[in-house]
Design a binder for these strands. Structure first.
Length: 629
RNA sequence: CGGGGCGUGGCGCAGCUUGGUAGCGCGGGUGCUUUGGGAGCACUAGGUCGCAGGUUCGAAUCCUGUCGCCCCGACCA
């Protein structure tokens, strides 16, 4: 390809719309253009990058025996209703774009394809003899992100490779999961990316084991915690660790303590000389469920620990009654929530700042009785207020983190304003704590696998995620097969994603310098750019054309900068574009000398044009294998 | 959705406080000079000042509404 024919428009200034380096560079170098928030045109240069990434993905997946397919993006609502995800994905802050067709049928634009592929499996896979099967596709996904950002990093329309495997038993699923793990490591290495595999929360997709692949970069949206020995790495959402030992509080009879205005752990410690680890911190939250019910949740944590919201949501989800459906959200009980949910609650009757783990169920119920003024002040609609009251589950879901439960004697709120208790015990409060890991692991914590190791934090961009889904979808959608003994059972499933367009940008985030992008050879839009320094010099022009033709003939992806621009302009653009190798045909052209420059590190050397092809072929062919070597 | 900010030639911005009919840099076109790190000179084209109301003799500027975009938090490849 010739630069003069490339529709290349580079920008000298950083576009105002971009914040992080990769986004700025992709815009400046003419790889992408924004069409609407979170929606981008992939220009010809980026399209070549996407094709190269896709080719690597295909090679590695095909090598495992996976089958490429292409599934519909427009999907009927009833499929999603069968899996129970329609309301969660469309209602409220749901992520699925959805619409009605001319017949009034509801459809969604696919944010993922578990439902469609499972329905197909139900149709096609009947016997254990057909298993296992692994299907994948590379196509555009749609997600109405709450906040699109950072260009391709979090778009509303993006390219994803998603794969789904089907198995006759869990062991086979685990085999494929392991095989995908290995394939993913090869894919990212071949792309030239430094990634780290971390244990992950499986989120809305559900399932058991799951692992994310993170491109390490400052601009990453995720926090990774890992041990120095390399044996443990996890997303902070999921990470576990050993909490520091608590400072024991002497056993003593439980007594009430006056704590006027002391509503925080810091206040209590400052006023009475407690250590935060001697206090049980109690949080009151409300979970919104798909059926409209509102479940109050009382969380107990050790005072020096932080709540991990993802762990809490998982813990609550697992405890919802079937008729409550899925968990839509969980948030602290605040005045804002009372207003937005029209809850007939009098928050001033709840002793925030002095909550104890034994807060009675009646506390909420008692305040929940709507007074005439509240009914009038609220929506002015008594029926609504009563409805909201009915939606409020009258019993607290009490969850306790082990760090709190392990305290033999502790300080906690007295369920009365300005009162706390010292010397409380779980038995003394008449409680048998329901244990759930709810604490957020932090950088610096000791590791579970080896207390000598501590966790350190790094930021990462999630480019891949693999899950063992189990039978959640196959059961919901009736995807059953006949096993060896002639009995019917649900298929075991795995699912495996790679954010292809995100990966392209992550590669830039990890590989750039002050002059522009430095693509890894394996995914660069072109492998080498021939720059004719001065097009007006016949010797340069001739030699440049000649080398360009030979590079193409040698099977290299070559670009020729044949623009009648000053050399400086062409050098700047070549750096910005990030082509890994540059051949400068300039002053030495008459003597048959050219300059070879490696983009990464700007390493330069002169050599005879006659030797160029052989030299460069070897270098580029080595580079094509990325970090595998 | 909550909090913060921005919409002015293709791009980056000034002008707005204190209303008087739009400017700078880059980019585009033409010509001459230049030619190894985003050249110089000259000429030139290009703007419903996001949109809609309002105030005013007069609005980019003041007021109201609305749309779009970006950043910080909850969702995910």
């Amino acid at each position: 390809m010739r630069v003069s024919r490339l529709m290349l428009v580079t920008l000298r200034d950083d576009p105002a719309e971009a914040e992080i380096p990769s986004h700025k560079l992709l815009l400046r170098a003419g790889y992408i253009r924004r069409v609407a928030s979170g929606i981008y045109a992939y220009l010809p240069l980026l399209f070549r990058v996407l094709q190269k990434i896709s080719a690597i993905v295909r090679e590695e997946l095909n090598a495992t025996g996976a089958l490429e397919t292409l599934l519909p993006q427009l999907q009927p609502a009833d499929l999603w209703e069968r899996s129970g995800r329609w309301s969660g994905y469309t209602a409220g802050e749901g992520i699925m774009f959805h619409l009605r067709d001319r017949q009034g049928r509801e459809l969604g634009l696919g944010p993922t394809h578990e439902e469609v592929v499972t329905a197909l499996a139900a149709d096609l896979l009947r016997s254990y003899r057909q298993l296992p099967v692994n299907l994948y596709q590379i196509q555009t996904k749609f997600r109405d992100e709450i906040r699109p950002r950072f260009g391709l990093m979090r778009g509303r329309e993006f390219i994803m490779k998603d794969g789904y495997s089907f198995h006759a038993n869990e062991a086979s699923l685990q085999d494929s999961y392991g095989e995908m793990d290995r394939a993913y490591r090869r894919i990212f290495s071949r792309c030239g990316l430094r990634t780290v595999a971390v244990e992950a929360d499986s989120g809305a997709i559900g399932g058991s084991a799951s692992q994310e692949f993170m491109v390490t970069a400052e601009a990453g949206e995720d926090l990774i915690l890992s041990s120095g020995d390399g044996l443990y790495a996890a997303n902070q959402e999921r990470a576990v660790s050993l909490a520091a030992a608590a400072l024991p509080l002497a056993a003593q009879p439980c007594r009430e303590l006056d704590t006027p205005g002391q509503t925080s752990i810091e206040d209590l410690c400052a006023a009475h000389g407690f250590d935060p680890s001697q206090i049980v911190k109690v949080l009151l939250l409300v979970a919104r469920c798909a059926d409209g019910s509102l479940l109050p949740v009382l969380v107990s944590l050790r005072g020096d620990q932080l709540l991990n919201a993802v762990k809490l949501a998982n813990g609550v989800s697992a405890r919802l009654a079937p008729e409550q459906g899925t968990l839509l959200s969980i948030e602290p009980l605040t005045a804002d929530l009372v207003r937005s949910e029209r809850l007939p609650l009098d928050l001033s009757a709840i002793p925030f700042g002095s909550l104890g783990p034994d807060l009675s169920d009646g506390t909420l119920v008692a305040t929940a009785a709507p007074t005439p003024t509240q009914v009038l002040a609220g929506s002015g609609n008594a029926a609504l207020a009563t409805a909201a009251q009915l939606r409020l589950v009258p019993k607290l879901l009490r969850l306790t983190d082990p760090t709190a439960a392990e305290l033999e004697t502790f300080v906690c709120g007295g369920n009365n304003p300005d009162k706390h208790r010292v010397g409380a015990t779980w038995a003394g409060l008449g409680l048998a704590p329901e244990l759930v890991d709810l604490r957020a692991a932090q950088s610096g914590d000791r590791c579970l696998h080896d207390p000598e190791q501590t966790l350190t934090a790094a930021r990462g961009i999630e480019v891949g995620h693999i899950f063992q889904l189990g039978r959640k979808y196959s059961e919901a959608l009736g995807a059953r097969f006949t096993n060896e003994s002639g009995a019917e059972e649900a298929l075991w499933m795995g699912c495996y994603g790679i954010g292809v367009s995100r990966l392209a940008q992550a590669a830039v985030e990890q590989n750039h310098d002050s002059n522009g992008i430095c693509w890894p050879v394996a995914i660069a839009p072109f492998e080498v750019i021939v720059v004719i320094a001065n097009l007006q010099e016949p010797a340069q022009h001739l030699l440049g054309e000649e080398l360009y033709t030979s590079l193409l003939a040698a099977g290299l992806d070559a670009l020729l900068d044949d623009r009648d621009e000053r050399a400086g302009v062409k050098f700047k653009d070549a750096d910005l574009l990030g082509i890994p190798w540059r051949v400068v045909v300039g002053r030495g052209a008459k003597e048959g000398q050219v300059e070879l420059v490696q983009r990464q590190g700007s390493v330069k050397r002169e050599l005879a044009a006659a030797e160029l092809i052989a030299e460069l072929s070897a270098l580029i062919k080595a580079g094509r294998s990325g970090l595998l070597a």
